[in-house]
Amino acid sequence: MKILITGITGFVGSNLKEYLKKGFKIIGVSRKNSNNILSYKELNSSVFNNANALIHLAGKAHDLKKTADDKEYFTVNTALTKQLFDQFLKSDCEVFIYMSSVKAAADAVEGVLTETVIPNPITAYGKSKLAAENYILSKEVPKNKRVYILRPCMIHGPNNKGNLNLLYSFVSKGIPYPFGSYENKRSFVSVENLCFIINELLDNATIPSGIYNIADDEALSSNQLVSLIGTSIHKKATILKVPKILVQGIALIGDILPIPVNSERLQKLTEDYVVSNEKIKKALNKKLPFTAQEGLVKTIASF
């Protein structure tokens, strides 16, 4: 089975390549061609016809520094997806997997996010991902083809720290974590569980096409994460319950001055964002290989 993977040099792409290479022939696709990697200009009908599946990972990630031009999100996340999906529909390629995001559905979650929610993204990133989803869903897909839109929550894994890095810095440097007054729950997904799910989608033709949230089974609070980091690196994790109004004031200062905490980062660390993975687990009819805690411990160990 021959698989095309866009964005193969990125964090998810490089992990997925390693995960799938024993069972599949992998052809990487990126903006510039190099050894065994095609450019988008080289993705002609012959390449598509000789491939069994296309996994579209490439995209412009959400810019926390807010320096990106909104148009760039739609150029990369929407227009490129449209182009690739049109080529897929015309070809003999049978499986299309699009890596969207939970942010295409909601920037804030009350309760638990499921696939039945009416999407209402606020950021250009989320809107560009949703626009790509809507284009895919607007097309009639032949019966011999399968199309999956995956909405992962925060993906983590070895050598990809993300927002976990800030929590790690508190514990590793012996700095008390000051946001203990926030009681939140947040979903994560380990890159190992994500790769497992994609492998199952490729292998099992009975899994219905559609939109699937991707998350680990358990949601954890930031306080739990801080404690888990402390346990993992054998250092005492001190959690302080600084009054929220004081914390919010410090974050506002961080919006102006270059200190570790600003309003957006505070929101990321303390917000509730629980994502249901029941639909994908029911479709797979299998357990995920790693619990949330096991996956996070692997990531923490790589820091």
Rank of each mutant, 00 (worst) to 15 (best):
M1Y: 11
I3V: 14
I3T: 10
L4Q: 05
L4C: 04
T9M: 05
G13Q: 09
K17H: 14
K17V: 10
E18L: 13
K22A: 13
G23I: 06
K25V: 15
I27A: 01
V29N: 09
V29C: 04
V29Q: 09
N33V: 08
N33S: 14
N33G: 06
N36G: 03
L38D: 04
L38K: 08
Y40D: 02
E42M: 00
E42C: 04
L43I: 01
L43V: 03
S46C: 06
S46E: 15
F48H: 02
N49P: 04
N52S: 12
L54I: 13
L57Q: 07
K60L: 15
A61T: 15
H62N: 07
H62K: 10
L64M: 14
K65S: 13
K66M: 12
T67R: 14
A68Y: 13
A68S: 14
D70T: 14
K71H: 09
E72M: 12
Y73K: 03
F74K: 08
A79H: 14
L84H: 08
F88L: 00
L89M: 06
S91M: 01
S91K: 10
C93N: 05
E94Y: 10
F96M: 00
F96C: 00
F96R: 03
M99S: 10
D107N: 15
G111Q: 07
V112D: 09
L113R: 06
T114L: 10
E115S: 02
E115N: 03
T116A: 15
N120V: 10
P121F: 07
I122V: 15
E133G: 03
Y135W: 01
L137T: 04
K139I: 06
V141I: 15
V141F: 13
K145F: 08
Y148I: 00
Y148D: 01
I149M: 04
I149Y: 07
R151G: 00
P152V: 06
C153K: 04
H156Q: 09
H156Y: 11
N159S: 12
G162N: 05
N163R: 02
L164D: 08
N165S: 12
L167K: 01
Y168I: 09
F170V: 00
S172R: 14
K173E: 05
P176C: 02
P178R: 10
Y182T: 00
K185Y: 09
S187I: 04
S187T: 00
V189F: 06
S190E: 06
S190D: 03
E192K: 11
C195I: 05
C195V: 11
N199F: 12
E200T: 03
E200N: 11
L202R: 07
T206H: 15
Y212V: 01
N213V: 04
I214V: 12
D217Y: 09
E218A: 13
A219D: 14
L220D: 10
S222Y: 08
S222R: 07
Q224S: 13
T231F: 15
H234I: 13
A237S: 10
A237N: 04
A237D: 07
I239A: 07
L246V: 11
G249R: 10
A251Y: 09
G254E: 02
I256M: 14
I256D: 01
L257W: 11
P258F: 10
P258G: 07
I259P: 12
P260N: 08
S263I: 06
S263N: 07
E264T: 11
E264K: 14
L269I: 14
V274H: 11
S276G: 04
I280C: 02
K282Y: 11
T291Q: 11
T291C: 13
G295C: 08
I300A: 08
A301G: 05
A301C: 12
S302Y: 09
